[in-house]
Design a protein around this nucleic acid. Structure first.
Lengths: 350, 350
DNA sequence: GGCAGTATTGCATTCGGATGCAATTTGGAG
DNA sequence: CTCCAAATTGCATCCGAATGCAATACTGCC
């Protein structure tokens, strides 16, 4: 039996329990349902009721318990956002923007950060236990994990990755297209030998970028291509450049790094250790368009991801699918924005 | 009346509801409490029981509902992490590390991102509604907000900010100490006129850094100090440098920027626009020790925050207080790590 | 003033799992 | 083979808010 007439009880230690809707109801002399209704949007409650309840509520410092509400409504109003820890300066921005988009729409973000893109297992378990309403992920799930999530009828939106053989929604920047542009420009400016610095093997983004570049190079009939791999970080960018020169026998005409940070590493290594002028002796390009790429000392030629539009789009897509689960998957690809920086010799822009 | 004997029901559309502990119990032919116990750590259940339940559980794809559990245990196993959106490259790292620390200990992170450090109001309301077990914040709360949180008996740990007149726990890097070191070194190397580039007015960190520098300069008897203010971003770093030169009439001997990113902005502006050699003509220092500060083109003299230890410490501190609410507040201050980069003329290290 | 129609309000139940207590089983010692 | 303590298991109840339905209170209109 409930004891709704008791005022918020105090334990022996004098600390009071958080007020519940029953406490408020008792103080206001109304029913618990009335309190519940006052704290909802479209519920019917008279003005008088509203006032009495609100008065009692702030006297007690009452606020609805989102946990209890979630239990009965079957909606947690939380989405899982999954990121991986990359040394990538680009994700933080994405994360903050996403969180703000969701907040604006009354949805909370439960954050999961992976050490590597490949350890998704535990995370899936947790997401499901917390009954998140949706998942926005910047890491790839295995087909099995994906199936598990879908069995639970939780909509998923992939950020900057997608799956050709699976019906999933995704928002991405067209990595291949971006790389093709970079390659075209470099080739048009007369570069003939290329170095490619790829990212971690488990990064889908890195793979797409590499393939984009390689395919376009092949189509242009360029075969002098050397590849080395790093981890998206500055230090490996430097190491990779040295490795590249060694592997190729001499510095190539141009280096295509899988992201801006590694491109910056390459530029530093080229200048400091090899005494090369950038872009005089060698052209170096990146991808992402992160903050440091704009620093005057580097001014990296790159492809900028339209982060604002992408996050906006990803958040809406997920929220739409939460509202309407029948909605079929949709893949949106945004073109990157070419940035003709000073780190590469390019043909004059038309 | 419950209907524990029904198998997971299907709606007309054929989609099944998520399995509950009752479903599992029914399938395994045991009681719901038994299922509950099998999915707990220290609960007593025989081996036979465990097996039967587990078998039924995976057949149904059952996983405990953390929301329901939270309701009865009065523990959400979630903490709120509050960050503000600064153009500061340093926070992302902090965020990822914190999230990992908490995850390791079975605690989920509910993320709140503020547009500016000062709009904390809404966020407090949300945290309380979700009944988070603790709050870790890299933004300042008003005394009233703080009181609200404490009335709810939710432990709070401040990250890189604290309050002298309030009993709160905090983990911080000693900003003042760091600035004093920077000033001492610069003065020892003969710099006599200073420019200070501070951050946003609502950033506690910025204020502490500025005061640290000003106090030490005053103690050293240096009065030629010009101050301008930015927003922690690269662009304003550049603008601030120009402004500084204009305000001072000529470039000062040294510039102390409130963070590395602005220091980098200053370096670029000094070199590109004013044709100054860094550190030949002018010394420029920052704070934080973020990634780009290490880039060869800048090699910023700075004070690095021991992020790893700080996040580790902050997470433990909060978790301890969640376990044991009686624990009194504690303030931990970590010394920054001096980084003698090439962006400033310094006395030879002893 | 009376009545139909609408807006409020309360009642009782529900969401899914945890837990104190009592009943039952198991294990071990003698 | 007994008997007692310890380990298992089930029962009943609780956590806090939402909601369908029925009861009641207003509203406007004639």
């Amino acid at each position: 039996m409930n004891k709704p007439t008791k005022t918020p009880e105090k334990t022996a230690k004098g600390e009071r329990k958080r007020a519940t809707s029953y406490d408020v109801a008792a103080l206001a002399g109304v029913s618990q349902s009335a309190v519940s209704r006052v704290f909802q949007d479209g519920a019917s409650a008279s003005k008088a009721m509203r006032e009495r309840v609100m008065a009692a509520a702030d006297k007690l410092g009452y606020r609805p318990n989102a946990i209890a509400r979630g239990l009965i409504t079957q909606r947690s109003n939380m989405v899982a956002v999954v990121i991986s820890k990359l040394t990538n300066l680009y994700y933080p921005e994405v994360l903050v923007q996403l969180t703000q988009r969701f907040s604006e729409r009354g949805v909370r973000v439960l954050l999961f950060a992976l050490e590597r893109e490949s350890d998704t297992g535990l995370v899936v378990e947790q997401m499901l236990q917390y009954r998140v309403d949706g998942v926005l992920t910047a890491a790839m799930f295995t087909p099995e994990e994906l199936r598990t999530i879908e069995n639970a009828h939780i909509p998923v939106v992939f950020y900057n990755r997608t799956s050709k053989d699976q019906l999933v929604s995704s928002v991405r920047c067209d990595q291949e297209e971006g790389e093709r542009w970079l390659v075209d420009e470099l080739v048009a400016a007369g570069h003939r030998s290329f170095g490619i610095v790829e990212g971690p093997a488990d990064s889908v983004v890195s793979i797409e970028r590499k393939m984009g570049a390689l395919n376009e190079l092949a189509e242009k009939g360029i075969t002098d291509v050397t590849t080395v791999s790093g981890d998206f970080g500055y230090e490996t960018g430097r190491r990779c450049f040295a490795e590249l020169v060694q592997k190729h026998g001499s510095p190539p005409d141009a280096v295509i790094a899988a992201n801006d940070v590694m491109a910056i590493g390459c530029i530093d290594e080229a200048r400091e250790v090899f005494g090369l002028a950038v872009p005089g002796d060698i052209s170096i390009v990146g991808f992402d368009g992160v903050g440091p790429a704009r620093y005057a000392a580097y001014d990296v030629t790159t492809v900028r991801q339209p982060v604002q539009r992408m996050t906006e789009s990803a958040a809406s897509m997920l929220l739409e699918r939460i509202e309407n689960p029948e909605l079929s998957p949709e893949k949106r690809a945004f073109s990157g924005i070419p940035v003709r920086g000073g780190s590469a010799r390019l043909p004059a822009a038309k």
